[in-house]
């Protein structure tokens, strides 16, 4: 029996919204420790790695590890019927062939319950090696979202270079070139506005803006976003969910012609 109760159901809704355009049919893996998802997009260029700890839930029971095969666009439709302040309950028997979702509104006392048929999804798990990244940048997630959106006007590829000068985002296209340089900023009193750049050695990589734009759907989950890069490796873009978990995106670089 798997049963989990999340007082702030909206967190789960935001997680679904942050990945449902990138990965469609996913397994939500339930263990005694956490709910997790690891899934690549259809082109195998990006990997989503989500984790939500059992400590995020008011009640969490998982007798046996389960994989809940779900179509995220369908799950997203169901979450449209959840109120902002609703409590969310997930429930599945061990012979999981369906998932129960319940939305409880304490104020009005209404309870909505939905049943989703589960799918059998064959998904090979990728081994993501632990890497000591050469550059790690923490910045306001809204700033990253704006940079990605603005540079999409200029072209389809973003060059991200981390040097002692700072962090530069560049895009070149038919109409010209755009550069946005961010410098370390730990002066502002609001922690969330800080930009911290830890650079062990300079790194410069190219990425498809289309994917970076998908990743910024996770912006509502976290005021800050963490970018980690090493020469010749996929970038990791991490949206921490308070201390309860994270949504991480890995993206393979584009090679220079």
């Amino acid at each position: 029996m798997f049963e989990a109760r999340l007082a702030n159901g909206n967190i789960f809704k935001m997680i679904v919204e942050s990945i449902r355009e990138l990965v469609v049919d996913v397994n939500i893996d339930c263990s005694t420790e956490e709910l997790s998802i690891q899934c690549m997009d259809s082109a195998h260029v990006a990997l989503v790695s989500m984790s939500l700890s059992q400590s995020a839930f008011d009640h969490f029971r998982c007798d046996r590890s389960l994989s809940l095969g779900l179509n995220l666009p369908n799950v997203s439709k169901i979450f449209k019927m959840m109120g902002r302040d609703d409590t969310m309950v997930l429930k599945a028997e061990d012979s999981a062939d369906k998932l129960m979702l319940m939305f409880e509104n304490d104020k009005s006392g209404t309870i909505a319950d939905f049943e989703l048929k589960l799918m059998a999804i064959e998904a090979e798990q990728l081994g993501v090696p632990d890497t000591a990244y050469k550059c790690s940048i923490s910045m306001p997630s809204s700033e990253f979202q704006r940079i990605v959106r603005d540079l999409q006007v200029m072209g389809d590829t973003c060059k991200i270079s981390c040097t002692k000068e700072g962090l530069k985002f560049s895009a070149t296209g038919q109409i010209g070139t755009g550069n946005i340089l961010m410098r370390q900023n730990v002066a502002s009193e609001k922690e969330e506005d800080h930009v911290t750049i830890d650079m062990e050695e300079p790194v410069e990589l190219n990425f498809a803006l289309r994917y970076l734009n998908f990743f910024t759907k996770a912006t509502p989950l976290s005021p800050t976003v963490i970018l980690k890069m090493s020469p010749g490796l996929p970038i990791v873009i991490e949206y921490p969910i308070e201390q309860l978990g994270h949504v991480k995106y890995y993206l393979a670089p584009k090679m220079e012609e």
């Binding site: 260029v45 990728l126 081994g127 070149t172 890995y250 584009k254 090679m255």
Partner: peptide, 14 residues
């Protein structure tokens, strides 16, 4: 512009 690699170039199957 440029050639898009896939993640299999970097991550194996566990």
């Amino acid at each position: 512009s440029g050639l898009q690699a896939t993640l299999h170039k970097y991550f194996g199957y566990s």
